[in-house]
């Protein structure tokens, strides 16, 4: 009973807290530090030869992230394969 009564209060406090935190970081649409973005936009096409800057960042500058992301998908497929009886009975 006590826990059910305190649930909305906790939710309201968390909501106000997160809203205040999200407004206190920085104004929306204005990144605080833009040196990295400017470098990628200025030199990305020249260095990687790719017209799509997003592909240049995902597969070249930040390739390790993509590698680990693909490994996560591999692990997910392996987990489903093990859990749902895809192997020998």
């Amino acid at each position: 009973m006590e826990r059910n009564k305190s649930k909305p209060i906790v939710a309201a406090i968390l909501f106000v807290f997160l809203l205040a935190m999200s407004f206190s970081i920085h104004p929306a649409g204005k990144p605080s530090e833009t040196k990295m973005d400017d470098f990628f936009i200025a030199h990305g096409q020249e260095e990687t030869g790719s017209n799509n800057i997003v592909a240049a960042i995902v597969f070249d500058y930040r390739g390790m992230d993509t590698l680990v992301e693909a490994s996560v998908l591999f692990a997910a497929a392996t987990g489903v394969f093990i859990a749902l009886g895809g192997g020998k009975k």
Binding site: G49, N51, F59, D60, G63
Partner: peptide
Amino acid sequence: GTAGLIPLMN
């Protein structure tokens, strides 16, 4: 035919 390794990785 540009971009080197990026299409192969794709």
